[in-house]
Amino acid sequence: MLSTGALRAHLLAARLAGPVATTREESLRSYRLFAARDPRVTLGLDPESAWGERDLIALMADRCGVSADPGQVSGPDVIDPERTLGGLDAFAGRLGEVAARRGVVMFGTGHPHRLLGFYAALADALSAVGCEVLTPAQGRCVDITTRFGVRTYNLEYVRGVALVRERGARGAGSVTGVHTHSPLPVRAALEGVVEGGGPLPELVVGDHGWVCGAGQLGIEAIGLADTDDPALFVGEAEGRVSVAVPLDDAVRSDYYRPLTRYVLNRACLSQ
């Protein structure tokens, strides 16, 4: 069993928390764009309140531990490891509750190169205790606006976790898909559930648009978020995201393995 102290040390050593790779400049830019309701950073969330840049700095200081000083405009951003640990405990709690009632879940990620293994291990554990892990709309085309224009991707699943990848991409080099913030993949997946006449998920687990897009539609959602992803924390503050765990979401994929063990143990899902 991984102790809280050992995980805290790992969070700091791997730069999942503490001073992280995300810069203050990147975070402030995201806060400005969110305040302007730019869809690239609202991630499918339609905020109920008017969130100005200073409001977002205050929120992120409270939820993540970043500096609350608007005058700090450069350097690495900082995530309080205690807030990460608290978020992981809450995250595990929601997984444990769904597992106890053999609920219906859906997993999806916009960070497949980094987080696929983390989510896949959780999907495997929930499936093993009798939860239904949904994989609807396999192969469906999703048109997503990128900085290169509108690109068409396919919605696919790897070990029960949804991701999008280039049309026609196959093989080991493409198995982890592409990075996206869009809420369109979760909308396509949920449309597939409705069309198939199956049950909607009781819980969506993921990041970026998967969490905000599901939460906006009234489906419980939990996920991971970096300091430049204010939408998940706004969603949590407004009651449409159940849990947003603050951490760096783009470190090496193997650095998330201790988090997997910790969450599975806390959720009573360790095998």
Score class of each variant (00 low, 15 high):
Leu28Asn: 01
Ala121Asn: 03
Asp207Met: 10
Val98Asp: 00
Asp80Phe: 09
Thr22Leu: 08
Leu247Asp: 11
Leu163Glu: 09
Ala58Thr: 12
Gln216Pro: 07
Gly192Val: 01
Arg83Phe: 12
Val243Pro: 06
Asp89Ala: 06
Glu166Arg: 14
Glu25Gln: 08
Val245Pro: 07
Pro39Thr: 14
His179Phe: 13
Gly93Gln: 06
Leu16Met: 10
Arg101Val: 06
Pro19Leu: 03
Pro201Val: 05
Val98Leu: 13
Thr4Leu: 01
Arg257Ser: 11
Gly160Asp: 04
Asp229Ala: 05
Ser67Asn: 06
Ser3Ala: 05
Val150Phe: 07
Ala120Trp: 07
Cys268Arg: 12
Trp210Arg: 06
Thr23Lys: 11
Ser253Trp: 00
Asp228Lys: 15
Pro136Cys: 00
Ala189Lys: 10
Leu259Asn: 07
Gly160Phe: 01
Gly215Tyr: 12
Cys212Asn: 15
Pro183Cys: 09
Ala188Pro: 00
Arg187Thr: 09
Phe233His: 06
Ala14Thr: 06
Arg94Asp: 07
Ala237Glu: 12
Val175Gly: 01
Gly75Thr: 02
Val251Thr: 15
Gly87Val: 04
Gly209Glu: 07
Leu269Glu: 03
Ser30Gln: 09
Thr152Gln: 11
Trp51Lys: 07
Ala225Lys: 14
Arg252Tyr: 14
Asp46Ala: 09
Val205Asn: 07
Val161Leu: 08
Val20Trp: 11
Ala189His: 05
Gly192Lys: 00
Val245Ile: 11
Cys64Arg: 10
Asp229Met: 11
Ile79Tyr: 02
Asp226Arg: 14
Phe148Ser: 11
Pro70Asn: 09
Trp210Tyr: 05
Glu236Cys: 12
Val150Ser: 04
Asp248Ile: 01
Val129Ala: 05
Gly160Thr: 01
Thr84Trp: 04
Arg24Ile: 13
Leu203Glu: 06
Asp80Glu: 12
Gly96Leu: 00
Val129Tyr: 01
Gly71Ile: 15
Leu33Lys: 13
Gln216Ser: 13
Met1Asp: 15
Val263Ala: 00
Thr84Glu: 10
Asp248Glu: 12
Asp55His: 05
Cys268Ile: 02
Val20Lys: 04
Pro81Asn: 05
Asp69Gln: 14
Arg140Asp: 07
Cys131Lys: 07
Trp51Ser: 03
Ser49Gln: 15
Arg140Gln: 13
Thr84Leu: 07
Asp226Met: 00
Ala188His: 11
Ala137Val: 02
Pro47Tyr: 01
Gly5Ser: 15
Gly96Pro: 02
Gly198Trp: 06
Leu33Ile: 10
Ala6Phe: 08
Ser67Cys: 04
Cys212Ile: 09
Leu217Gly: 07
Arg24Ala: 09
Ala17Gln: 04
Arg101Ile: 02
Leu16Ile: 03
Leu155Met: 01
Thr180Gln: 13
Arg147His: 09
Val186Trp: 05
Val193Leu: 10
Arg32Lys: 12
Gly213Val: 13
Ile79Val: 14
Leu43Val: 03
Ser67Thr: 15
Ala225Gln: 11
Phe118Gly: 05
Glu132Phe: 09
Tyr31Glu: 06
Glu132Gly: 03
Val66Cys: 00
Leu200Arg: 13
Asp226Phe: 09
Leu115Met: 10
Gly86Lys: 13
Ala244Asn: 03
Arg165Val: 00
Leu122Lys: 13
Tyr262Trp: 14
Ala35Lys: 04
Val243Met: 01
Gly65Ile: 01
Arg167His: 14
Asp143Met: 01
Leu115Tyr: 02
Arg167Asp: 11
Cys212Asp: 14
Leu16Arg: 00
Ala9Val: 08
Gln138Thr: 05
Pro112Ser: 02
Val211Tyr: 06
